[in-house]
Design a protein around this nucleic acid. Sequence first.
DNA 1: CGCGCAATAT
DNA 2: CATATTGCGC
Length: 353
Amino acid sequence: MGEKLKELNLDSDSIFVPKIISDILKEVSVIDDFSQKLSKLDFHVNAFEEELKKIDAFKRELPNCMHLLEDAIEKLKEEQLQLKGKEFRPVIEQFIPYKSDSDENGREKRSGDFSDKKNWMSSAQLWSTPVLYENNFDSRNQDFGLHLKSVCNFGNRGGAFVPFKKPTGEEMKETNGLVPVQGLSLSSPVCEMGSNDLSLKGKCGNGRVQQQQPRKQRRCWSPELHKRFVNALHQLGGAQAATPKQIRELMKVDGLTNDEVKSHLQKYRLHIQKLPSSSAGVSSSSWFTQEGYGDLSKAIVTHSGSPQGPLNHGGSTKGVSVNGGDSMEEDEDEKSESHSWKCRLQKQVEEHV
DNA sequence: CGCGCAATAT
DNA sequence: CATATTGCGC
């Protein structure tokens, strides 16, 4: 098991290097005092478990993480048990309750001794291989990156857990110089574990690779994604006029399925008919305040000529515009836009009846 | 198939 | 409760 961990491209420069199991074990092995050994192990196990909890919500996305951590924990406990076995003294209180321990307990328990390590995983150099969003999405990438951070709590998880990227071939194809957008905030439902697909399925019992997906991985609609969605939607003449498939095509987000768009559209429609007014609280207006992300300037300014502002407020809609910032700049539809907005106007008026 | 809606799940 | 997925009729 230790090997598995080592196999990872966890370069030894990672800040918490010593935390990698083998190192930990090594570290522990040189300790003379028994209780110190145990305590050290104990601590590390706790640290791992805490991290395990942290990523629990993402276990489907980061099965590797889970396995890594689980393996690590197991290994450490194993070691611990061995130690205990050798030692005649019971040391019961050292035993670590497996999952029952809550974050706080664990934290409180151990926060004293090795203060810095509870974050070792959070600082996560483990996954710090450069996250490459290999699409040529200028500013938007940042939006996305930003979002990823905020949403997923992981500074960046490249390395073993790169968002996702198709093997090859397709990524080269361009449409009018615009690449369909590969890993834009879409962590592919299928977790791509490349070379790091270590075979630590031991934990899962059966040797069957966990490929079963009773339910699809939840598509996370990042602001960027939503922005694209809204843009496409508007280009198609409003929420009522646009159809999922068209939207999906316009969005040019690969990996995005019709169903997902359909679902999102459904929700979107509900929202625009539910709270068309600007009086909506800050919280609920998340749908319409996406632009607040990267660069407002770009989102707002955009086209001067187009009757954007008044457009969206078909009667009921007031201060808040439904548009998520029509920054349809480099999208190749600019030519047809002159006429598209007319169409849009029409459709939008139809809405908000 | 694709769309819309409703049920269901997280 | 909000949001995403699945199921079902059209």
